[in-house]
Every structure is written in structure tokens, then in C-alpha cells.
Amino acid sequence: METTLVETLPHVTWVGVLIKAILILAIISAIAGFGTFIERKVLAWMQRRQGPLHVGPYGLLQLAADGIKLFTKEDIVPQNANKFIFMVAPIITAATAFIALAAVPVFPDFTIPSWIPLLGDTFVPAIAADLNIGILFVLGMMAAGLYGPLLAGMSQANKWGIIGSARTAVQFLSYEVVTGLSILAPIMLVGSLSFVDFNSYQAGGITSWLIWQQPVAFVLFLIAGFAETNRTPFDLLEHEAEVVSGYATEYSGMRWGMFFIGEYANMITVSIIAAVVFLGGYSEGTLGLAILLKVAFFFFLMLWVRAAWPHVRPDQLMWLCWKVLMPIAVINVVITGIVMMV
């Protein structure tokens, strides 16, 4: 399918992309941090508690305090750890999470007002890198993110770490299948791998949202997304009650913080994908408020689920993936294909 949108838009310069990249990095990091605050608050409310309260108004500066704490904590590398890999692993997690965001429309495009010196009139695109295989790239990058926990767990010379990394491999690889298959059906419908095309496909209002055409794919994608982002009920990688802290057992300070940021960035990525692919994406008119609400809903859903539901066992997780979700996804693809043919 030909894209006509690109031609109507101003030219995307490298400055614009750079600005976008910096914005993404800054904002998503901040949001990830803020996400922890939100998570603590929401969980607290759902458990009739107050949550962070004393640092700053409503405890808002708690995340700054946490940040300072993480930055100033001693960086411990275990004696028998593979030092290099141990130190690199959190960077992989954080990096892949942010790289994935490069191909995701984070918020609408805009042009820097011309009165701002140097950067005036620079067009900042919605997507830093509008690849025409955006979805593939994002999924691929998230899959690559598996190396973070995997290497972290294996390098740290800790049995809980090993178990954590084994679980990582099993869980991420398995659910990669479900994610791919579930999102395949919408891709077939849209006929493109570009997020921009998905957005345009659903531009006709709520009724044109893909969720109505692909409800099964949506549910599957959501479930797989929980698993991919390592959220309750599928947070088996670092399930405290079973494996202390899984792959992150030996990490402290900012290295541990990078896993954290990576996890929250991934949550945002998944939320954005879900919003763009199934819930109509960002519409031009609402100044990006729509996409923000949609992303926020998915983010909230993740916290909500965490407050309400228990963990599953690893074997239940595998059973669910291979015996339930994967077959359904395949059937969904087949049915979609048949419908399209007919």
C-alpha cells in the first residue's frame, strides 16, 4: 500500500529526529519513574492504603528520593560474577526498551515555533524513525530485550539468578510466539507494518478501531504483553516468594535501576502498541490527548491486574501459552485469512 501521508508532511530532518529521540528518552524515563510512583499509589489505594505521602506534596518527590538513592547506592559486583556481562546486562535491557520506542509513535508530530533560535521551524516527527516495518522492529527489539535478564541472571553466579534467567528464556521466547501470531491478524488487515498506516487505517473514529474486528487478537496480545513485560500475573522472572529476585538478585543501585526503567519503558511500549494497533492510535484533532488516555488506560490496567490477581505457576504459564493461547492465535490468523479471502 502506498503511503500518501509522508508526502504531505514537512521534510524530516536529522535535527528533528534527534530532538525526538532526546524527548523520548527524557520523557519516557521520567514517565517510567513516575510510573513507579503511580504504581505505588494505585496499589496502595486498591489496598486501602495511602502510598508514598511524605516526600513532597502527595509524596510526589518520592521518585526523586528513590532516584537519588539508586544513584548513590554502592555498585556491587559479586566476586564470582562474569564482571563484564554482569555490568552490560542492565544496559541491554534499558537500551532495547528505548530503541524499541524509536519506531513507536509516542505523541503527535509538531513543528518547533520559529521564534525559538536555532531550532525554529524544525519539524519533530511523531515517530523518531518511521520505519515501514515499525511493528516488526518493535517486536524484534523487545525480543532482543530478553538478553538483559538472561545474561544478568547467568552472569551473577547466584542460583536464584540462574533460575530467573532460565525462566526469562522460557517465558519470553514462548510468549514471543503469541505476540507475533496475535498481532499478525491486524497486520494482515492493515497490510502494513508501519504504525502510521495502522493509525491511518483506524482514523475513521471508534467504529473503525481494529479491536472490533480483532477482539481475540487484542486479548491475546494483551495477555502476551503482560508476559513480555514481566508483569503480574506473569512476573515469574523475579518472583520474590520463589526466587528472591530472580535475575536481579545480585544487582544494586543504578544497575538495578536500569532494569527497572527498562521494565517500565517496556510497559509503555506495549501500552502504546496496544493503543495504536487496536484502539485507533493517535488522532490528529485531540492534541495527542487520545493516545495519552489510551496508553494511560493500559498502564493502569497493568497495575489494576497486579492488585487483583495472583501469580501463576511456571507450568501453568507454559500450559497457557502453548496449549491455549498459541492455538487460538493460529486459529485467529486462519479465520482472518479466510474472511479476507472471502
Binding site: 494505585v42 496502595a44 489505594w45 486498591m46 489496598q47 486501602r48 492504603r49 495511602q50 505521602l53 489494576w304 491486574v305 492488585a307 487483583a308 490477581w309
Partner: peptide, 21 residues
Amino acid sequence: VGLGVVMKAMVKALFADDMHT
């Protein structure tokens, strides 16, 4: 139902002053 329960708890906590802290 589970989701409903926690949501109800949150709403009560926030708006009906049913906070236990």
C-alpha cells in the same frame, strides 16, 4: 470480579475515606 473488588476498594478509599493507613 477480582478486578471489581480492588476497584471498589480504591474508590471507597479515595472518595469514601475508607483509608486504613
